[in-house]
């Protein structure tokens, strides 16, 4: 086994965090626990063969009474215009269940850049990171402080410093992110680029282990 350090000099970036590494936004509070990926994007919308356009079906069955979209459920937060912004704040164990990456695509396509929760399911977390969507894990206590805020309040997420701040109160929490994933997000590059650049080593590994 060899150890290798990641370096990337690519100036080009498609990451929302590229350059400044921090941004401020109002947030959408989804005060529900155990939100599974079947709710985020129901199975009947998984039939596309491209990655585009999943945002319009985000939380579809919580947004509408029926598939004809005639009756929006007005008590659902995405249908309440006072809540806006590019940060989604959700209850614990967000993204559990099916591995469908369509869930991360739908959230990103809808326009969210960050999802905040006190707990994320594993596969969802990976899928989010692979799509430039930042999962921010904070304590249950800090999460409840955020839920208690009014609708015009803003949060500042700083990926560089790995912190999230309630701007009105100055209360701040730090979050963990794997150093490699952080570099990827800041620079907007992918695991697959890295793996493809390692193909010689992979071939060598295959030779040795047969």
């Amino acid at each position: 086994m060899t150890n290798q350090k990641i370096t990337n000099n690519s100036a080009e970036t498609n990451s929302p965090f590229g350059g400044q590494g921090a941004f401020t936004s109002t947030f959408v509070p989804l005060h529900i626990e155990n939100v599974d990926t079947d709710q985020i994007i129901p199975a009947r919308f998984l039939k596309a063969t491209t990655r585009a356009g999943f945002g319009k079906n985000l939380f579809r069955d919580w947004c509408y009474e029926n598939d004809d979209e005639q009756q929006p459920k007005n008590d659902f937060v995405l249908n309440q215009p006072q809540y806006k912004g590019t940060i989604l704040v959700a209850g614990k164990n967000f993204g559990c269940g099916s591995s469908r990456e369509h869930a991360a695509w739908a959230i990103a396509d809808y326009g969210f850049k960050v999802v905040v929760s006190s707990f994320f399911a594993d596969i969802f977390k990976n899928n989010a990171l692979n799509n430039g969507l930042l999962p921010v894990t904070i304590s249950e206590d800090f999460l409840q402080q955020v839920f208690a805020l009014g609708e015009d309040q803003t949060l500042t997420v700083n990926l560089e410093q790995q912190s999230i701040t309630i701007d009105a109160t100055g209360a701040s929490a730090s979050f963990d992110i794997n150093a490699y994933k952080k570099t990827c997000l800041m620079n907007g590059y992918d695991d697959i680029d890295y793996l493809l650049s390692s193909i010689k080593e992979i071939e060598q590994f295959e030779q040795q282990s047969v």
């Binding site: 899928n127 695991d191 697959i192 992979i202």
Partner: peptide, 17 residues
């Protein structure tokens, strides 16, 4: 289980991070 981006990685390199 893995997501679709990871499916692409495995198809391309037989590896995952």
């Amino acid at each position: 289980g893995i997501g679709t981006s990871e499916v692409e990685m495995v198809l391309a390199t037989q590896c995952l991070l």
